[in-house]
């Protein structure tokens, strides 16, 4: 027969917290991997319009961003308040757009070059003139996939 010990009052041992750092580290690594730091600092106002039918852009590595908007207050002294195009970390003119598209293409792997999507992040206050010009330049550069950046609007229809 087994012997059962009746130990009377035994204090419950403290739960070991030795694995706590490991758990936290795991979480930490998850966030470090999932985080995408913004690569460019915005020099233009960029509040995108809202739309109901937005779709998510897959494959971030195949997206090249074109920002359009009014220069932020820090840059207004030098660049005025007219809407401008920002490519990477500087202001650009329309003529530079084709070179930018070529450079973006060059930076991708050969098999991906034709599937680059140009993400037009345009401020909602901008007028269509500059957007149409950009679209014309993109057509000339034969980079035809575009995405009108907009925020998902939740609501009826």
């Amino acid at each position: 027969m087994a012997k059962f010990k009746k130990g009377g009052k035994k204090e419950t041992p403290a739960i070991s917290t030795a694995s706590l750092p490991d758990i936290v580290f795991m979480l930490l690594f998850f966030f470090m991997v999932a985080t995408t730091m913004r690569e460019v600092s915005l020099m233009v106002d960029n509040t995108m319009p809202a739309a109901t039918q937005t779709i998510k852009l897959e494959k971030k590595s195949l997206v090249s961003n074109i920002y359009v908007g009014k220069p932020t207050s820090a840059w207004q002294g030098a660049y005025g308040t007219e809407p401008r195009i920002q490519l990477n970390d500087r202001f650009a003119t329309l003529q530079e757009l084709q070179a930018f598209v070529a450079a973006e293409r060059e930076a991708r792997k050969e098999e991906d070059r034709n599937s680059i999507t140009n993400n037009l992040k345009v401020d909602r206050t901008v007028t269509m003139g500059i957007v149409t010009d950009i679209k014309q330049e993109l057509r000339k550069a034969n980079s035809l996939r575009i995405n009108y950046g907009s925020i998902k609007k939740i609501g009826n229809n």
């Binding site: 995108m48 739309a51 039918q53 937005t54 779709i55 998510k56 852009l57 971030k60 997206v63 999507t117 993400n119 037009l120 679209k135 993109l138 057509r139 034969n142 035809l144 996939r145 575009i146 995405n147 009108y148 950046g149 907009s150 925020i151 998902k152």
Partner: peptide
């Protein structure tokens, strides 16, 4: 990133 996807004509 989300938005409305379009394909421009050549």
């Amino acid at each position: 990133d989300s938005g409305l996807y379009r394909r421009l004509p050549p």
